[in-house]
Design a protein around this nucleic acid. Structure first.
Lengths: 140, 140
DNA sequence: CTCTCTGCAAAGCATTTGCACATTG
DNA sequence: CAATGTGCAAATGCTTTGCAGAGAG
C-alpha cells in the first residue's frame, strides 16, 4: 500500500486528510504490527505534540475505511497493521511475535459454514498460537 | 462435562477444590458463553459474598487446567465457556451473540501451516464474524 | 465562517493485585 | 497447622471521551 493509495482512501472518505492521519499511516507503512503506544512513539519523531487520543481516533477511522486491521488477543494491547491482502496470524506464545500467513482454502471453509448457519456479510480470521522457531531453539 | 469430570479435573491439579471454584464450573455447566460479570451474578445466587476477583482468579486457573476456554474480541469483555470438544465461533456483528461450530479439516490446515512456519505446541481458533439469521431478518 | 480535528486531561471499563483473614487438605 | 484461597478495595493498563481551542475548506 503506497502513500498515494493511502491518501486516496482517506480523501474518498468523509474524513479529512490531516498530517496526523498521514503520519499514522506512514508509521504502519512497513507492514509491522504495532500497538497504539508504539505508533505514538513513531509518529512523535516527526510530530512531537500528537496525543494518544488522536492515535486511537485515527486508527478507528482507518479501520472503518478499511485501511487498517486490528489484532487483539486476551490480556494485552491491540496491535494494528496496514490492511494489505487478506491474511491470518501466527502468534508466538513465548515472545508474542506476530507473523502473517496466507491460508489457502480457508475462505471456502468459512463460507460453507456461514452459509450453513445462515450468517451473511462475513469476515473471518484464524489465529494460530504456538511456540515460534526462535523461541523453541532458545528453550533448549 | 459432568460434575464428576469437573471435580476430578481440579482434584488432579495442584489446586484445591473450593466451593467457589465448583460454583464457577456449575455456572458454566449449561454450555453458555458468559462474561465474568455474568458468572459473578450466577454464582452469587448461591453464594452472595463471592468477589469478582475470585471469579477472575478461578477462571484463570480453570483455563490453565484446560476446563475453561476464553473468547475475547476487540473492545468488550471476554466471554468464558466450559471447554468441551474443540470448536470455533460465529460472532454476530449486530447482536453479539456467539455460536459454536465444529470446522472439519481446519486442524489439518492449521497443522500444515504451523509445520511450514516451524511453530510447535500449537492451538488455533477461527472466528467468523457476520450477521446472524435473526438479525438479518430483523433488518428488513 | 463553519465544520471537523486535535491536545489535554479526566473518565471508563475490564482485569489484576496486595493484604489480612478464612479455609482446605 | 502449613499452604492455599478469598474478600475487599485499591491499582493497573488500555481505550474512550468532553471540552475548548486550532485548522481546514
Amino acid at each position: 500500500m503506497d502513500a498515494k493509495t493511502v491518501d486516496a482512501g482517506l480523501l474518498q472518505s468523509r474524513y479529512r486528510l490531516t498530517k496526523q492521519r498521514a503520519a499514522v499511516l506512514r508509521a504502519l507503512g512497513d507492514g509491522a504490527h504495532l500497538s497504539a503506544e508504539t505508533i505514538l512513539v513513531r509518529v512523535r519523531t516527526e510530530m512531537p505534540a500528537v496525543s494518544l487520543g488522536t492515535i486511537y481516533r485515527t486508527l478507528d477511522i482507518l479501520r472503518e475505511i478499511g485501511l487498517v486491521q486490528i489484532f487483539s488477543y486476551t490480556g494485552s494491547a491491540a496491535r494494528y497493521e496496514a490492511a494489505l491482502e487478506k491474511h491470518h496470524h501466527l502468534l508466538c506464545s513465548v515472545c508474542n511475535s506476530l507473523v502473517n500467513v496466507r491460508v489457502d482454502g480457508l475462505a471456502e471453509l468459512a463460507q460453507d459454514i456461514a452459509r450453513r448457519e445462515r450468517y451473511s456479510n462475513i469476515d473471518f480470521s484464524l489465529t494460530i498460537v504456538g511456540r515460534c522457531n526462535d523461541c523453541t531453539k532458545r528453550m533448549n
